[in-house]
Design a protein around this nucleic acid. Structure first.
Lengths: 248, 248
DNA sequence: TTTCGCTTGTTACACACTGTTACCTTGGGG
DNA sequence: CCCCAAGGTAACAGTGTGTAACAAGCGAAA
């Protein structure tokens, strides 16, 4: 499945960071925004699959923004709000929201609802026109999220295992951000199947280290001296080069 | 918006009547149903735009029904349940529900959510119910659902066995969604004949794997390196390309 | 009924994937 | 310079998947 690009709109910095971080750990590309201007910039750039929109944005009104966006665009919107009375929820649906989530929310449940909305919109879109292809470029390499093809700088196709592919996706969603082994493992597990379980599948060992090594052998020119997937001693691993996302 | 036909599935007569009556007062066509058989009758007749499905249906399980319907059809489903814990909601979304509403609910709010879901799915819904003349396109291939003809990218007709054809249909109905062997087997059995029963025809073995291999040999350019029908290790199989449905 | 041809499930074996373990290398503090 | 924890990695084992070969089932035609 293609990686989803989710726009997180909240005027509270902490909330924004918490949500973007959580979404990234679960394999999405999360873009933060604090106001309508920033929202429109991201939409103009055509890089948004879904918007998580806080209703109370300081001096701006999320409901108004939602209504306005909906009259112009077809982008799915999930409203997030501390206002959870029935009439407030109904107002949200009335301005065209696809879902309405009350704060405080369970992050995993929010993720489930995000997926539900995305699958619904993509389902109907696929009948009319094709879905977007995202292609990630880094250091001359490219990764096609749709076909899962990985091409080396000299355009040779490289075969990654399912798990290596998943690791690459997690890294691509978090460029320049050091990830602990635990964070990586959690993201990998969620990606694979129908998620959940409190039992962190704590593989009790070095599985991530070995996986990283295997990926390095395939995408690093000099695996012994990694340029892309670097080690952060005592912390974890970082995807240390810039990532460019292209639409087609 | 056209008048919506909503299937109300609940084993409690009072609840069923209350809901159908309310929906009718608000301009929808509401059809009552008490079990899976009645649901399928209405769907077969092409009378349904959306399903309101109670999770606890006496001896039947709404979640199971939802999962099954989703693997075959594209009808939007809103689950309704007295079970409102987060993990129960997530389970609902995991089986493909479009929304999950806790009982007791505010009827007006439910209506708002129904409209939100319908506004997203309406386009596809109208196509899906016209099942007589559908032609599916994927990766240059085409499948005519009426004549059961399969044409390769260079317009050569390919002969699929009955079982391979059924598998292809199941996959076409679930593009980009990983299906377990069990789900596939179940869908094949249901699709093939009108029978069902709790007795999973558990073929005790690798029948699905072999069937997948045979279909790959016919529709993949490079069966050893599948582009269309991919394996999801530890999970099952995915139809990994976009599907376009055309009317004639 | 017999036979032929096709379909489909079963089995066995080979191979691919992935976590674990053990041993080695590296790097930084003392 | 030594020490030791952290990280790299080869080798191994358990499990999952691909697939050829076989066998059983079924319908059509002789």
């Amino acid at each position: 499945m293609a990686i989803s690009r989710i726009l997180v709109v909240d005027d509270d910095l902490d909330m924004r960071q918490m949500m973007t971080q959580f979404l990234r750990q679960n394999g999405s590309i999360a873009l933060p925004a604090a106001n309508e201007v920033e929202v429109r910039q991201h939409i103009e750039a055509g890089r948004v699959d879904l918007i998580l929109l806080d209703v109370m944005l300081g001096d701006e009104n999320g409901l108004e923004i939602c209504k306005r966006l909906r009259s112009e665009q077809d982008v799915p919107i999930i409203l997030v709000s501390a206002l959870s009375a029935d009439h407030q929820r109904m107002e949200g649906y009335a301005v065209g929201a696809d879902d309405y989530v009350a704060k405080p929310f369970n992050p995993d449940l929010l993720l489930a609802r995000v997926k539900a909305v995305l699958s619904r919109t993509q389902r109907s879109a696929s009948l009319v026109h094709r879905r977007n292809t995202n292609i990630f470029h880094f250091n001359g390499w490219s990764y096609n999220a749709k076909s899962s093809e990985v091409l080396s700088p000299d355009q040779v196709q490289v075969t990654l295992s399912h798990r290596e592919m998943a690791l690459l996706r997690v890294l691509l969603a978090n460029p320049h951000i050091p990830l602990t082994r635990e964070e990586i493992a959690k993201s990998l597990d969620v990606t694979g199947a129908s998620q959940q379980s409190d039992t962190v599948s704590e593989t009790s060992g070095r599985a991530i280290d070995v996986l990283v090594g295997r990926l390095r052998n395939k995408i690093e020119v000099t695996p012994k001296d990694p340029q892309i997937l670097k080690t952060e001693r005592g912390v974890g691993y970082v995807f240390a080069v810039d990532v460019e996302v292209l639409d087609r």
